[in-house]
């Protein structure tokens, strides 16, 4: 296992000195390759805290996270000076929710080069990687010399993702990568993540609120609710057995409409459609 959580909890302390438990008693395994995981749950349920443990940006208050064989616990730095956390951050690339946080250089090229150079890649190699990464996120080379601050929100997201890709991580973690994008932008990015997952054989972990993404793309779903991991399984299992009401999850549009049509037409569809064409064909079948 690339990442292993064993009974991990994390508390933060507010200005009033009260402790708040952000994640509670999480046990979880994540493989190095082949997974396309969506992490869902309402705002404040602990999703972002959970993923920041995956590359040691945060350390558990209780329990232990193992990332590529390195044990990370509360006092890891204090007790063991030899533990190097930096290499883990190259292996597990994290793209934050708001790309503005990660862009700061004068040009897009330098911004993308920053990560690899930080991990010891030469200038020349970093330049090559910047070009490849930019291409991988669907932007042409004309963007290299542009200032990242004059880009649109969707373009900034792409550049920040390119910056992480250029570090060539094994696992790519994205915190709400499609939020704020319109449907076309969303679809294009998800297609990109699918390609990275399939072609480069990387595990991709996406935090999302969009149940349509879960339904259409995920191989595995994690559900957080009130700081706890309440579900770990396939999308099909989730839609059959999940407690959508108390976890505050939305039914994907496709499933919602399919069930409404079953009631309306007084029929039972024996499968769930993935696309509107699918659903159309199913309706035609029962009407004829």
């Amino acid at each position: 296992m690339a990442i292993k959580f064993e009974q991990v909890s994390y508390d933060y302390v507010g200005v009033d000195q009260t402790r708040y438990r952000a994640i509670s008693n999480i046990t979880l395994d994540i493989a190095e390759t082949g997974e396309f995981i969506t992490l869902i749950g309402e705002t404040g349920s602990g999703k972002s805290t959970l993923v920041q443990h995956m590359n040691a940006l945060m350390r558990p208050t209780e329990g232990e996270v193992t990332v590529y064989g390195v044990k990370i616990y509360k006092d890891v730095k204090k007790k063991n000076k030899n533990v190097k956390l930096n290499p883990l951050r190259q292996k597990v690339g994290l793209v934050f929710q708001f790309p503005e946080y990660q862009l700061f250089e004068e040009t897009v090229e330098r911004d993308i080069m920053f990560g690899p150079k930080n991990f010891g890649v030469s200038d020349a190699d970093a330049k090559v990687r910047a070009r490849q990464a930019l291409q991988a996120v669907g932007l042409d080379a004309s963007y290299l010399e542009r200032s990242p601050f004059n880009l649109s929100g969707g373009e900034k997201k792409r550049v920040s993702i390119a910056g992480i890709l250029a570090m060539e991580p094994d696992i790519l973690v994205l915190d709400e990568p499609t939020s704020g994008l319109d449907p076309k932008g969303r679809e294009a990015l998800l297609k990109l993540f699918t390609e990275i997952h399939r072609n480069l054989n990387k595990t991709v972990i996406i935090i999302t609120h969009d149940m349509n993404t879960v339904y259409e793309y995920a191989s595995r779903v994690l559900v957080m609710n009130k700081s706890e991991l309440v579900f770990d399984g396939t999308p099909d299992e989730l839609f059959l057995t999940g407690d959508f009401g108390s976890w505050n999850l939305e039914t994907p549009d496709m499933i919602d409409l399919t069930r409404k049509l079953e009631t309306k037409l007084g029929v039972t569809f024996h499968r769930l459609p993935k696309t509107v064409e699918d659903l159309h064909a199913m309706v035609l079948e029962v009407l004829s």
């Binding site: 929710q97 939020s179 704020g180 149940m211």
Partner: peptide, 11 residues
């Protein structure tokens, strides 16, 4: 101005 686009369904 796109005030809900980053929120979960309940939000």
């Amino acid at each position: 101005d796109e005030a809900t686009s980053m929120l979960d369904p309940k939000g």
